[in-house]
Computed example of a mutant assay.
Amino acid sequence: MDGTDADPARNDTARDDTARDDTGDTGRTAGTAAGADADGVFAVRDRTGWRGVWRALALAILFLASVGFASGGVVRGLGFGSAVFVVLGAAGVVLFGWGLLVALGELTARRPVLEFDAAGVRRPARWPLPKRAARTLPWDDVAAMAAIRRGVTGARGGVRDHLVFLPTPELAELARTAERPALVALTLRDVPATAAAEPWAFSVEPGWDASLAEVVKQARRRRRIPVIDRRTK
């Protein structure tokens, strides 16, 4: 591919990010070495923020409360009420203990959420899964990249940009021509027509250590992939 949209009538949806920053991310500077290393691997990480810390703290409180439930049931002795306390406490210990372990692991492991190398686009496995569980989409199988926008202004989740690596020309054409509200299907796994795109849809988090513009630029340094920006059209 030559990195441009072959249809001149749709040039307003294809962007050449090697020439200019057209993704509209002016709130963060594009760190040229944010995730690049000597081996040519570009990694995007989610910065450790207060959200992760508060999540771990909340799970720790719930875990301790569950321990208290279980121990309180044991202290009260035999009885239906005591058994309920023990069962609920034990379930909470397992559930919140596992959540706390995962939350602490994510804070300390700092695994990337997205990587590029010479082989392709890689989605690293989330901790505590082994690193070998990562998935890779070869560059030859990437038909295009699409930037789309999900959410409603003022709603609880707000508006969030997504970068989707489209593995087939059919999905690339859909991204170019579909009505904007329908593009959300590219990020959903339960829509058969677009299910192949969902594993390669990345939500652009506020804590990413690289801007969307820099991520697109790094991808196109490895392969000249057409970029379809449908966030506003």
Results as ranks from 00 to 15, higher is better:
residue 1 M to K: 05
residue 12 D to N: 06
residue 14 A to C: 07
residue 15 R to D: 02
residue 18 T to P: 09
residue 19 A to H: 13
residue 22 D to A: 15
residue 25 D to L: 04
residue 28 R to F: 12
residue 34 A to E: 13
residue 35 G to D: 01
residue 36 A to C: 10
residue 43 A to K: 00
residue 48 T to A: 13
residue 50 W to F: 11
residue 54 W to F: 08
residue 55 R to N: 00
residue 57 L to T: 15
residue 59 L to F: 06
residue 61 I to T: 12
residue 62 L to W: 11
residue 64 L to I: 11
residue 70 A to F: 15
residue 70 A to D: 10
residue 72 G to R: 10
residue 75 V to Y: 12
residue 75 V to M: 09
residue 80 F to Y: 04
residue 83 A to I: 09
residue 85 F to I: 04
residue 87 V to D: 10
residue 91 A to S: 05
residue 93 V to A: 04
residue 95 L to V: 15
residue 98 W to N: 05
residue 102 V to G: 08
residue 107 L to D: 07
residue 111 R to T: 01
residue 113 V to H: 04
residue 113 V to W: 08
residue 118 A to H: 05
residue 121 V to R: 03
residue 123 R to F: 04
residue 126 R to I: 14
residue 129 L to G: 05
residue 129 L to R: 15
residue 132 R to W: 14
residue 137 L to G: 02
residue 140 D to M: 00
residue 140 D to F: 05
residue 147 A to T: 10
residue 154 G to Q: 04
residue 156 R to K: 03
residue 161 D to L: 14
residue 162 H to Q: 06
residue 164 V to I: 13
residue 168 T to H: 11
residue 170 E to D: 07
residue 172 A to Y: 14
residue 175 A to V: 01
residue 175 A to D: 00
residue 179 E to P: 09
residue 184 V to N: 11
residue 186 L to R: 09
residue 190 D to K: 09
residue 195 A to H: 08
residue 202 F to Y: 08
residue 205 E to A: 15
residue 208 W to N: 06
residue 212 L to F: 08
residue 215 V to Q: 08
residue 216 V to G: 06
residue 217 K to R: 13
residue 222 R to T: 00
residue 223 R to V: 00
residue 231 R to P: 14
residue 233 K to T: 10
residue 233 K to E: 09
